[in-house]
């Protein structure tokens, strides 16, 4: 079962695997040992639940993951994924600011405070990304204007959720 689980982890996108696979394996092993001790029927039920959870989780991870770059990354150029992350981080900051302005205009001060905190975190995230990719001056973004940048599914959903109610038709 351990080997099958490890194999099924390949269903996840690479980003998710890099981040969680080792930890998922550890948690699975502990849970597996416990359910095995509770009897065969319990273990079979556990195994089915884990397989179903893995398939559902992998599907969700793929839906939420960034689109695969259409243009292959040439050697020496910055990774397209990093560009996506930087663009998305910048978009998140813009969305938070727009939301904050909207909230203040509607006297929703608690919401504005929450968005302000999100904006601060988004800026911090952008700073870390810039440091990691060595893109402090962001000059490469000039050739990749924000309005033409591909939007990730997560960003689209966030943007739609934040539209004022009268735009939802």
């Amino acid at each position: 079962m351990r080997r099958a689980y490890k194999f099924m982890l390949l269903l996840y996108p690479r980003g998710h695997r890099d981040q969680f696979a080792e930890e998922m394996m550890r948690v699975f092993e502990e849970a597996s040992a416990e359910s095995r001790a509770q009897g065969r029927a319990w273990y079979v039920r556990f195994a089915f639940a884990e397989i179903a959870g893995l398939i559902g989780g992998a599907a969700g991870a793929w839906l939420a993951s960034e689109p695969v770059p259409a243009v292959p990354v040439t050697s020496g150029s910055r990774s397209r994924n990093t560009q996506h992350e930087l663009i998305e981080a910048q978009q998140r900051i813009d969305e938070n600011i727009a939301g904050m302005v909207h909230a203040i205009a509607n006297h929703q001060f608690e919401r504005a405070r929450l968005l302000s905190e999100q904006e601060r975190q988004a800026r911090e995230h952008l700073r870390v990304l810039q440091e990691n990719s060595g893109a402090q001056n962001m000059e490469w973004m000039v050739s990749f204007p924000r309005q033409f940048a591909p939007e990730t599914r997560a960003a689209t959903l966030r943007r739609r959720a934040r539209r004022p109610a009268f735009l939802h038709v």
């Binding site: 959870g53 893995l54 559902g56």
Partner: peptide
């Protein structure tokens, strides 16, 4: 793993989260 156990006890044994569900939500 502590999360899985605590959630099981929080829900009175009704919810036993699989690792796939747990880590999807954590992500």
């Amino acid at each position: 793993y502590a999360l899985i156990k605590d959630i099981e006890s929080l829900s009175g044994g009704r919810v036993r989260m699989s690792t796939g569900t747990l880590f999807g939500a954590l992500r």
